[in-house]
């Protein structure tokens, strides 16, 4: 079988989407169960606080429920949901432009790799970054996506992402020069 012949969305998931479109909230709850870990993982990139992550995840699924009619089954459902989630996180970051929470338990960060190496000085400087810059830098450096991937997943034009990324890097550099 060629890759092009494969359905973009598994049959079971397609049935859940179809039932949800007809107002079946039980089917939608099953969709939530299927994708909740992925959404939490993505939202967790932007917020350190569990309550904020849950809030962003709930908002993602509620928005998905409301806009489900705009989903085209040609693309995988998770791609569409990723876009919804990223836009929810971006909106939430912009709505609450508070500095990033300081790293909790720096010594025992979950991945254990980076946090002990980050100086408090740098951490505090990064805390003052603008929400838009934080968003793009977390996708670039945190998720490790390039400009094309960010453009595709967030749904912004590529040049827009390029400009935002350039400005964010420049502002970060200035911030670190000053600190």
């Amino acid at each position: 079988m060629t890759a092009g012949a494969e359905p973009a969305i598994p049959a079971g998931e397609a049935a859940l989407v179809a039932a949800s479109l007809h107002g079946d909230d039980g089917a939608f709850a099953d969709l939530v169960r299927l994708h909740q870990h992925r959404v939490f993982k993505l939202a967790g990139r932007f917020f350190r606080n569990r309550a904020d992550v849950e809030d962003a995840a709930q908002e993602t699924f509620l928005r998905a429920w409301r806009k489900l009619a705009s989903y085209r089954s040609r693309a995988p459902f998770e791609h569409w949901l990723t876009r919804v989630c990223l836009n929810c996180c971006y909106a939430k970051l912009k709505a609450a432009p508070r500095p990033m929470e300081p790293m909790e338990g720096r010594a025992e960060a979950a991945d254990g790799a980076a946090s002990p190496l980050v100086s408090l000085e740098v951490e505090q400087a990064l805390g003052t970054l603008d929400a838009r810059d934080r968003f793009i830098l977390l996708l670039l450096d945190g998720e490790g996506w390039d400009v094309a991937e960010i453009a595709e997943r967030v749904g912004w034009p590529r040049t827009n992402v390029q400009v935002r990324a350039f400005r964010a890097r420049r502002r970060l550099r200035k911030l670190l020069e000053r600190s």
Binding site: R45, M103, D111, A113, A114, D141
Partner: peptide, 12 residues
């Protein structure tokens, strides 16, 4: 800063 962004995750 890059390390900070990489490690910035709630792991919730």
């Amino acid at each position: 800063a890059r390390l900070y962004f990489q490690s910035h995750h709630a792991h919730a």
